[in-house]
């Protein structure tokens, strides 16, 4: 018998809202949006956690500049607090080495992280999801029942092709969908807005391609001053947070 599933609800009991930042496609800026959202909420005075579930290619720690940190053991593991955010990632255990996991291993890792992480009381837990509709997405839906989804795409038709599939499965499963953010826009095309509206999902707004954003990676104090952060804050005005 699998005992870990019994304790997950208790671990998440004192978290008010869980927001999974997801996309059907990789490379659209999910980690940047997830990390920036966590910083935005933390700056607003909320107690915030960030869980990086991109187990093959975790990157939130790079964006937040997390170095030489490790969870504390206390009736489980307590995530270190980084720039006001309780931050949990597989990277504490993989040391930046390649992570060749198969599907069953992914589910086991997610179960283990959810069973042993002591988040305490949080207003928000933000999840940086990997791309697609694979094990991680299905496990978040299965084990984190109150999760809401914030979906990210780029203006590309290629990205929207995959994002549309994610939106359709989330709608089919009746998961709360906060809306879609169009990231890295360079023109005034309304293609994404029309596609999202066609699926009866909220289009929250766009984030312009920020040519100097790369300079703020690893430096949250600079990140919160970027044009990307200003654009993200504007799109977040369309959600009740």
């Amino acid at each position: 018998m699998e005992p870990r599933t019994s304790v997950i609800e208790k671990r998440l009991k004192h978290i008010n809202r869980i927001i999974a930042v997801a996309s059907g496609k990789g490379g659209v800026g999910k980690s940047m949006v997830a990390s920036s959202l966590a910083l935005y909420l933390s700056q607003k005075g909320y107690k915030v956690g960030l869980l990086d579930l991109d187990l093959y290619g975790p990157s939130s720690h790079i964006i937040l500049g997390v170095k030489n940190q490790f969870p504390t053991e206390e009736k489980g593991i307590i995530p270190p607090v980084v720039h006001g955010i309780s931050f949990m990632s597989i990277v504490y255990f993989t040391e930046e080495k390649p992570s060749p996991f198969r599907g069953v291993d992914i589910s086991n890792i997610i179960l283990e992280l959810l069973a042993i992480t002591q988040w305490g009381c949080l207003d928000f837990l933000i999840i940086d999801m990997p791309p697609g509709i694979g094990d991680e997405t299905l496990d978040v839906i299965r084990y984190m029942k109150k999760s809401e989804f914030l979906v990210v795409t780029t203006p590309s038709k290629v990205a929207m092709g995959a994002v549309g599939k994610l939106l359709r499965i989330l709608l089919e499963l009746k998961k709360p969908l906060l809306g879609v953010i169009e990231n890295m826009t360079m023109t005034d095309s309304s293609f994404i807005q029309q596609e999202v509206k066609r699926l009866h999902v909220r289009y929250l707004g766009n984030i312009d391609f920020d040519t100097v954003l790369e300079d703020s990676i690893g430096d949250p104090d600079r990140l919160v001053q970027t044009q990307m952060m200003k654009d993200l804050s504007r799109t977040l005005q369309n959600i009740k947070l």
């Binding site: 005992p3 599933t5 019994s6 206390e74 042993i116 002591q118």
Partner: peptide, 14 residues
């Protein structure tokens, strides 16, 4: 005491 969290899952499941 990471063992505590696993023990808790066993007791709750039982």
């Amino acid at each position: 005491m990471h063992e505590w969290a696993l023990a808790e899952s066993i007791v709750m499941a039982a």
